Simulated assay, not measured.
Amino acid sequence: MDALIPRPAREIAPGAWHVPDWLTPAQRRALVTACRAWATGPVPIRHTRLPRGGVMSVRTVCVGWHWQPYRYTRTADDVNGLRVAEFPDWMVRLGRRAVLAAYGDEARAQEYTPDTALINFYDGQARMGMHQDKDERSPAPVVSLSIGDTCVFRVGNTETRTRPYTDVELCSGDLFVLGGPSRFAYHGVPKVREGTGDPDTGLASGRLNITMRVTGLDRTGK
């Protein structure tokens, strides 16, 4: 059998970096275990209901801050009123290593202090429409980690949901960072390739996407 050809890191758009196979197998398994625990509460994983009545096809659980369209709160008033799990220090360290891997800038990496993560689970039918991550009050990068099934990740521009955009395949273990001029680029997931994940991660099916962010809010939510 031919050896797998390494996939090189590449800049998809200015400040938008794809780093394939960044997570080790052990890290993937540990993240699946952590996310499975968060999914049970204190605020459980759920399909988010949008203000106009629509329901997102992905299921989401939050850590650090609770996201509800389109703001962050300390308590999940749209679910059960409880406060979400604390954002762990080890995730801050993981986020800093991710920023260093993307940009190669030690000072920029050490300044990065994420305080929330949105964890989305995609089954084979789930999709994510083109959107901007703009509910944060900080321009710090968004760090995205993928585990499980491969997806098509669409990276667009900062002005419109339509073309021009670039489609990238994100596989289990891949890192994607949106920062710099692409921090507020529209992006989405039009397709999940069912059955492409590695069950050794502990995820039998589907795609787990962990996105770390800096809210820019103080501890009181201001």
Results as ranks from 00 to 15, higher is better:
73 T>V: 06
127 R>N: 00
73 T>N: 05
43 V>R: 10
110 Q>K: 08
62 C>F: 12
103 Y>W: 08
52 R>S: 10
129 G>R: 06
130 M>T: 00
117 A>Q: 11
86 E>A: 14
104 G>P: 05
52 R>E: 12
64 G>A: 09
54 G>T: 11
96 R>T: 07
75 T>F: 02
70 Y>I: 02
81 G>N: 10
65 W>S: 08
50 L>V: 05
83 R>G: 14
82 L>I: 03
43 V>D: 04
83 R>F: 02
45 I>T: 12
51 P>C: 11
129 G>C: 09
111 E>C: 08
83 R>H: 05
132 Q>Y: 11
55 V>A: 01
94 L>M: 14
101 A>C: 08
41 G>W: 04
83 R>M: 10
115 D>F: 04
99 V>M: 02
87 F>D: 13
82 L>Y: 02
107 A>D: 15
122 Y>E: 04
114 P>D: 01
56 M>A: 13
113 T>K: 05
73 T>H: 10
61 V>P: 13
99 V>D: 00
127 R>S: 07
62 C>Q: 15
66 H>G: 11
115 D>L: 05
70 Y>C: 01
72 Y>L: 11
115 D>G: 03
63 V>H: 07
117 A>K: 10
103 Y>N: 06
91 M>I: 02
87 F>W: 11
129 G>W: 01
90 W>D: 15
82 L>V: 05
116 T>A: 14
123 D>K: 07
77 D>L: 15
113 T>Y: 04
100 L>W: 06
111 E>G: 15
87 F>I: 13
42 P>T: 03
110 Q>I: 00
46 R>E: 06
72 Y>W: 09
51 P>Q: 07
76 A>G: 02
115 D>N: 14
103 Y>M: 02
128 M>Q: 03
76 A>V: 12
130 M>D: 04
73 T>P: 08
40 T>S: 13
65 W>H: 02
78 D>M: 10
82 L>K: 14
77 D>Q: 13
49 R>K: 15
121 F>I: 06
132 Q>N: 12
115 D>P: 15
44 P>G: 02
61 V>E: 12
